[in-house]
């Protein structure tokens, strides 16, 4: 009996230290208390599933199958307690910041998309009861906000105006935080810094002059108001030609060793066919010589 207890303690101790070495992922309290601004619907779960397949599945695997890949710390299966015991806000924070091999999705997924992923994760938890953020700050703006974007080429600046419309009244959005992003291959690149609108609802961002754009120099921009609780999700996408025109040919465009047969390197084609022609040319010459031997014998016999 004693032996069993001893062994159990050792095993437990082992698992305990295992858990310790992974290290706990600590989420700040106010972040963990964050709640989704909207109620999760079946549509949200569906949208979340698509986002999960695209962004998360490659590491976390198929939900419920435990086939996540071996990383340190292990990604874990989203249906297990390891992930489900987190509060909505904690998952939101972890998605946003990332850790170790997990990338930060802050600029990759919009806040709404992050909540949709969480809706999908929660769809595997039957005990889950959602709490929605019900408090809407008093200062919230209830109307429609128009965003106008203007590129000031001479100064290489981006100017945007935020004008609100409510009950036939028009007023600039004053003192609102605005962030600007450029779309890159993975996620979004923050441009300049978060800036506040002035009393005319105007805001200006300094643009870098060395940002690679597409072949004509176009860069996909996205501007938005930071504070969603106050203004809702206000974003404006625009394509502007302030980048450096960049043309990167696809890797399969030119002749290369890795390309298809029709795009084999010229030197290789010459070497291969040249060697083949030489050898088989000589073989043909030898066959001709054998014929000569035959003719020589025939001539002699006839003599």
């Amino acid at each position: 009996m004693k032996i069993i207890i001893t062994i159990s303690i050792i095993i437990l101790g082992f698992f305990y230290t295992q858990a310790q070495t992974e290290g706990e992922w600590i989420v700040p309290e106010e972040e963990a208390a964050l709640l989704s601004p909207f109620e999760f619907t079946a549509d949200d779960v569906k949208a979340g599933e698509e986002l999960y397949l695209l962004n998360c599945k490659s590491c976390h695997g198929d939900p419920g199958k435990g086939n996540y890949i071996a990383l340190q710390p292990p990604p874990g299966d989203i249906t297990t307690d390891k992930i489900q015991h987190n509060s909505d806000g904690a998952i939101y924070h972890k998605l946003k910041t990332g850790r170790g091999p997990m990338p930060a999705f802050e600029n990759v997924l919009t806040p709404n998309q992050k909540w949709q992923v969480i809706a999908y994760i929660r769809s595997f938890n039957d005990d889950y009861v959602q709490k929605v953020a019900v408090e809407i700050p008093e200062t919230a703006f209830g109307g429609k906000i128009d965003v106008l974007v203007n590129y000031m080429k001479d100064e290489n600046k981006l100017q945007a105006s935020f004008i609100g419309h409510k009950d036939d009244e028009t007023q600039p959005i004053v003192g609102a935080e605005v962030h600007a992003f450029a779309k890159r291959k993975f996620g979004k690149l923050t441009l300049d810094q978060v800036r506040k609108t002035d009393d005319k609802g105007l805001v200006a961002f300094n643009l870098p002059d060395d940002l690679p754009g597409d072949s004509s120099g176009y860069v996909q921009l996205s501007l938005g108001l930071v504070n969603m609780e106050l203004y809702g999700e206000i974003n404006k996408d625009k394509s502007l030609a302030f980048g450096v025109p960049t043309y990167l040919p696809p890797l399969n465009e030119e002749r290369a060793m890795w390309n298809v047969r029709m795009k084999a390197p010229i030197w290789l084609l010459i070497t291969y066919h040249g060697a083949l022609l030489t050898v088989f040319g000589i073989i043909f010459y030898i066959l001709l010589q054998l014929r000569n031997i035959y003719l020589e014998g025939k001539k002699n016999e006839e003599d």
Partner: peptide, 21 residues
């Protein structure tokens, strides 16, 4: 044996073929 008659000419040709091969 392609009408091999052991003539010098045939040997000359054969030696050349063998050397090339």
């Amino acid at each position: 044996s392609i009408r091999w008659i052991h003539s010098n000419e045939q040997y000359r040709m054969l030696y050349r073929i063998i050397r090339i091969l």
